[in-house]
């Protein structure tokens, strides 16, 4: 199955918050439909510097278009931010496993920290969530909050500076919510690594079924280079690109 394509940039839209943009590209008709949480390697064709593609979650996929939500982190993403309509990009994907699709009656609680929305937006849009916890540093970094509201009425917001929702970390709200319910034990989460570590510590003995999406630097994205590994609880290394990026939280070693 071919997963290597040349796409054309349709729009490159800077967001209100500085350093973020959405890149929308055409989709080859032979490209498999991405699952929520899968990613693509995006590269400016033939460029030797930077030489590697950038692993980006599929943010949205519909009507022959695919969108990536990107934050400028370095030279590679800065170059992607300068693409304009009509420019070509090479796309390798969709890659990785993605979040499992569940029955409507068993929708997960979704927990998003900041840029984690890039990985879970498509899931929320398609399937919704039994409850959504969305945290960020400040109100302006609650990206696409208005779109998400439409798909989830059980919404809990928090910001580090208190500029929106509850002041403080999202996990406090989550912990209170979990204590009050008995039924739903399934959680899908995407956020910074520190948040996963905190979750692993706080929810270790709660019997919650927590699934998270990891982020790592990658060279190939297909499992060949072994550059993106993460340590597991069985003291082996798993490839974030191939066995992941979505893992059970309790399978990851934070040691």
């Amino acid at each position: 199955m071919n997963r290597s394509f040349i796409s054309v940039v349709i729009t490159n839209q800077p967001l209100a918050v500085s350093g973020y943009f959405t890149l929308t590209v055409s989709v080859d008709s032979n490209m498999p439909i991405p699952m929520p949480g899968q990613f693509c390697m995006i590269k400016i064709p033939y460029s030797l510097d930077p030489i590697l593609g950038r692993p980006l979650c599929v943010f949205d996929f519909e009507q022959g278009l695919m969108t990536f939500l990107v934050r400028i982190m370095g030279r590679g993403t800065a170059l992607l931010s300068k693409l304009t309509a009509g420019d070509k990009v090479s796309i390798l994907g969709p890659l990785g496993n993605g979040f499992p699709i569940v029955k409507n009656s068993q929708l997960p609680i979704i927990v998003v920290g900041g840029m984690g929305i890039a990985s879970l937006y498509m899931f929320i849009k398609k399937y919704g969530a039994s409850a959504l916890f969305y945290g960020a540093k400040t109100a302006s970094e609650l990206i696409f909050l208005d779109d998400i509201k439409k798909n989830c009425d059980n919404l809990f917001i928090s910001t580090d500076d208190g500029s929106a929702g509850v002041k403080g970390g999202i996990l406090d709200s989550l912990e209170r919510y979990i204590a009050a319910i008995n039924s739903n034990r399934l959680i899908y989460c995407c956020g910074p690594h520190g948040m996963y570590k905190a979750m692993a510590e706080r929810f270790d003995r709660t019997g919650l079924d927590i699934t998270v999406s990891l982020e790592e630097r990658m060279a190939c994205g297909i499992g060949g280079c072994l550059g993106c590994v993460t340590k597991t609880n069985s003291n082996t290394y798993s490839r974030v690109c191939k066995e992941g990026p979505v893992f059970k939280l309790n399978s990851i070693s934070f040691g």
Partner: peptide, 9 residues
């Protein structure tokens, strides 16, 4: 193998 990070562009 080695602990990550293992690659740098």
């Amino acid at each position: 193998g080695n602990p990550p990070p293992r690659i740098w562009e």
